[in-house]
């Protein structure tokens, strides 16, 4: 089998079971810490491990720096899914940043669930600097799950409407 063949079959596989329109590919934003997951993703690259190309990384010093508003903004900007990844519990470069992040996101996930967001669109993982292969698994897993959900049209429609109709009257009308 040539490379081109294997690629096209991979693309077919991707389409299989996909909910979105033809040619739609999920867009995923990953917020990662500099010390563990960013370095783990570097290791995946250095080891030439292959994974799906749907994730765009935004680097922060620590997962503790991530404001839940960033995640909301990513959805507003058209992200179909968000991944947050940092150091394993106990391994934080800043000793306790990931614990704060974990608490914050446990709460934030509850809020998202309450609002009606499928939690597959908001995922968390611990990937250390030595876990290049795990990073690959995480990315493929997240991408497949978001792909199975289809485009995040509900949120995107809402945020478009919000941008277009900013006055209070319209909000009341919609309510």
């Amino acid at each position: 089998m040539t490379t081109a063949d294997s690629q096209s079959s991979e693309q077919e596989q991707r389409r299989e079971g996909a909910v979105g329109p033809e040619g739609w590919e999920p867009k995923i934003v990953a917020f990662v810490c500099n010390w563990c997951t960013y370095a783990g993703a570097d290791l995946a690259g250095t080891s030439r491990l292959q994974y799906q190309p749907n994730v765009r990384i935004i680097k922060l010093p620590c997962t503790g720096r991530i404001d839940p508003v960033f995640i909301v903004r990513a959805y507003e900007g058209g992200a179909d899914g968000v991944l947050v990844s940092g150091c394993h519990p106990g391994d934080c470069h800043y000793s306790s940043g990931n614990y704060h992040a974990r608490r914050r996101f446990a709460l934030f996930r509850k809020l998202m669930e309450f609002v009606g967001v499928d939690l597959d669109r908001l995922q968390f993982s611990w990937v250390s600097a030595a876990e290049g292969a795990k990073w690959v698994d995480v990315i493929n897993d997240v991408t497949n799950r978001v792909r199975a959900l289809g485009p995040f049209t509900e949120y995107q429609a809402l945020s478009r409407w919000w941008k277009e109709v900013p006055d209070e009257q319209a909000i009341e009308q919609r309510a």
């Binding site: 490379t3 690629q7 993703a41 491990l49 190309p53």
Partner: peptide, 16 residues
């Protein structure tokens, strides 16, 4: 980071 996070992990030139 278009090497470790991009060219080395994706084979398709359009995706990359």
């Amino acid at each position: 980071n278009v090497r470790e996070h991009c060219s080395w992990v994706h084979q398709d030139i359009e995706d990359g």
